[in-house]
């Protein structure tokens, strides 16, 4: 119940949720939220699995792998924000607490599966990103005692840092995760919704 309360409060962007989560000893809530958000995300993107005719058991395994990859991406993102807040704003919050705050702020991503919604999927994707960003800002402000703009700079630079790492050092990791996805799915995952049709021009 504590978990549900915290998630509800973070969805409502209440700072008390983040102050509460850092008081908890374990990372359970944060990691649970992110793992479930990852599952939801994998489900939201599952068109690729269907397009490649992945069988039901492998489909479930692919969702779990997707959630684990999502979790590792989250850890990198939290680490980036932690580096930025430490180096730029001189805050001495522990990395563990940063994981708790950013993890709870991922609560809106629990609804990632709404990306499946036909025609309005990208609207949900953008809305959830903005919602989660707002939650991160509330969390950083509350826990690190930052101003709005400082919190914004923190998450923006954290995001930029993550993108830089993704496009440089992260490449071998990406190749590895791609190989893992193919292995679990049991196909090369070459089909995308786009190349299923000869009639996909401009719309």
């Amino acid at each position: 119940m504590v978990e549900l309360n915290l998630i509800g409060q973070s969805l409502a962007l209440k700072d008390v949720a983040f102050l509460e989560v850092v008081r908890l000893e374990s990372l359970r809530v944060a990691l649970l939220v992110v793992f479930l958000a990852g599952l939801s995300h994998a489900l939201g993107q599952s068109i690729v699995l269907f397009a490649n005719e992945v069988k039901p058991r492998r489909f479930v395994a692919s969702l779990i792998l997707g959630a684990l990859i999502y979790l590792s991406g989250f850890l990198f993102f939290s680490f980036s924000i932690w580096l930025v807040e430490g180096f730029i704003f001189g805050k001495e919050e522990s990395f563990k607490n940063m994981v708790k705050v950013v993890g709870l702020a991922y609560s809106p991503y629990l609804f990632n599966f709404f990306i499946l919604t036909p025609y309005f999927g990208s609207f949900f994707s953008v809305a959830l990103s903005l919602w989660s960003l707002a939650a991160i800002l509330v969390g950083l402000r509350a826990v690190l005692a930052l101003s709005f703009w400082q919190a914004f700079v923190c998450s923006a630079l954290g995001w930029v840092l993550l993108q830089l790492v993704n496009r440089t050092l992260g490449r071998p990791v990406h190749s590895l995760t791609r190989a893992g996805r193919r292995l679990v799915a049991g196909t090369k995952l070459e089909q995308s919704p786009k190349n299923l049709s000869k009639h996909q021009g401009r719309s």
């Binding site: 068109i47 269907f50 919604t117 036909p118 025609y119 999927g121 919704p193 786009k194 049709s197 996909q200």
Partner: peptide
């Protein structure tokens, strides 16, 4: 909406 969606349209319409 599934038929009109760029992701699902090719599948549904086929």
């Amino acid at each position: 909406a599934v038929s009109a969606d760029r992701r699902y349209g090719p599948i549904y319409n086929q």
